[in-house]
């Protein structure tokens, strides 16, 4: 079947989609958007997290046809081409990326969290990221990255802040 949806602001069409196929497969294999990762295909790891009509979901659990006509936003679409979203920048600055496999899903989940809760507490961060697994970092650097992204976003003058906030004032 043919599936047309808006992906990162642009209308995209995939042909020869199998009816039981996931949105994740369509994004990665048919639309050339490999940012969303495929690790478990069962909703456990969160590495495929994307926005579907503004809600963070596991793309591996959305049937391709369910995304037809809907608005999909992937990690590739968080910032304009060549630029980085503040959450992406915070992950780099905080050293929250090792092998990087979990990173795209985490970036989308953190982006979603900060849109809803601009200054999350640590328990709120842990709760929001409970569906994103990372086998490398031990999560502490990821926590740092989220705190940094939150601080950066809420202090307009602090965009150039380092991981410890130095340089922000």
């Amino acid at each position: 079947m043919r599936v047309t949806c808006t992906v990162n602001g642009t209308s995209r069409t995939a042909d020869d989609v199998w009816e039981g196929e996931s949105l994740l497969y369509v994004l990665r294999e048919r639309l050339g958007l490999p940012g969303s990762k495929n690790a478990c295909e069962q909703g456990e790891c969160g590495s495929c997290t994307v926005y579907l009509d503004g809600t963070a979901v596991c793309a591996c659990l959305v049937a391709a046809g369910q995304a037809a006509g809907r608005d999909v936003r992937t990690v590739e679409g968080l910032a304009p081409e060549g630029d980085l979203d503040p959450v992406q920048r915070a992950f780099l600055q905080a050293g929250a990326v090792q092998c990087g496999f979990c990173t795209p899903g985490l970036i989308v989940s953190v982006h979603d969290l900060l849109a809803r809760v601009p200054r999350p507490t640590d328990p709120q961060i842990r709760e929001a990221l409970a569906g994103n697994l990372c086998r490398c970092t031990g999560y502490e650097k990821i926590m740092d990255a989220v705190r940094l992204a939150a601080a950066t976003a809420s202090e307009p003058g602090a965009a150039a802040a380092g991981p410890d906030g130095a340089g922000s004032r």
Binding site: G43, G46, T49, T55, A56, V57, C58, L61, V62, S109, D112, E127, A128, A130, G131, N132
Partner: peptide, 9 residues
């Protein structure tokens, strides 16, 4: 239930 992503869906 599950995680935020699972509860959203």
């Amino acid at each position: 239930v599950g995680s935020p992503q699972i509860r959203n869906r």
